[in-house]
Write a protein that binds this DNA or RNA. Sequence first.
DNA 1: CGTAGACCCTGCGCGC
DNA 2: TGCGCGCAGGGTCTAC
Length: 286
Amino acid sequence: MPELPEVETLRRSLEPVLVGRTFTRVMARTPKLREPLDGAELARRLEGRRVLAVRRRAKYLLIDVEGGTTFVVHLGMSGRMVLAAADDPPELHEHLVLGLDEGADEDGRLRQLRFRDPRRFGLAFVVDTETLADDRHFAHLGAEPVSRSPAERPIDGAWLRAQAEGRRGPVKTFLMDATVLVGVGNIYAAEALYRAGIHPKRSVKRIALARWRRLAETIVEVLEDAIAEGGTTLNDFRDGAGQEGYFQVSLAVYGREGEPCRRCASPVRRIVQSNRSTFYCPQCQT
DNA sequence: CGTAGACCCTGCGCGC
DNA sequence: TGCGCGCAGGGTCTAC
C-alpha cells in the first residue's frame, strides 16, 4: 500500500489534528507485528505526552512527543492509521489504539488514533528523538527524493550516476534499494522508469548521464504528482481522515498489464524482478 | 562483497 | 456456490 506519497499524505492529514494534543491511554492489542509490539513501553513513553511534530523519514511516520520521544509507525503493505471516535466500532486487525485529549477537530469527537494492519508487516515503536537517525531502522537509509525542508537538496542525475558507480543489476532494483534512495516502492519505480523511457531491466552500468538526469527528474515528478493527488488507493489506502487517494487514475503502467500504453498503444507488459511485478511499455522504454 | 530469492501474514478476486 | 490459487503497495535475512 504505502510508498512515500501515501505516507506523506497520511502525515499531512494527521499533522494539523495531532500537534498540540496529548496522548491519553495507549492500548496494544496484538503483540506480534513485524517486530513484537511493546505495549508497556509505548504506554510509558506516550501517555500524558503532548505531540510536538508529525514528520516523515522514508516510509516511516514520526510523531515527536514531549520528553524526547518519537513514536514511529511503518505501515508495511496493509497498514492504516486513522482518527476515530471512541464509540466507533473496532475493526479487525486493529493492533494499537491511542487515546487523545480533546482537540481541534470540528466536533471534538475524534479522540482516538488507531493503527490497523491485517498483514502485520508494519511496525510501531518508540525511540529517542535525538538519536533517531542512529536507530537500526534508520541508520542505513539513503537520500530523500522529495525535500522535506528547504535545506534538503533534491536528488539529481549526477548523484544517481555516482550512486550506481561500481554496481550492477537492473535499474528498477536499484531504484528500490533504500540504502540509495528511500520512498520509491514498486508502483513509483515502474512509473518513474516509464516517464523516463528506461527499460526496467536495463543494467545500471548502461545508462548515460542524460538518462540519469531525466530519471532523477521523473522520480521527483511522479512522487510530487502522487502527493498532490493524495496518494494511490489501489485497495485500502486511506489518509488519517479516511480519505482515498486519486493517483491510481494517473498510473501509466502499474497494474495495467495488457492494456494499451497511453503514448503508443502497445500492450503494457508485466515481468517479475526480485519477486515483484514490474510493469512497462516495451515500445516506449528501452 | 553485492545481488537475488525466500519469507513474514491476511485478504481478495479470479477461474474452475 | 465454493474452493484453491495467485497475487498484493515492504523490508529483512540468507544463500549464492
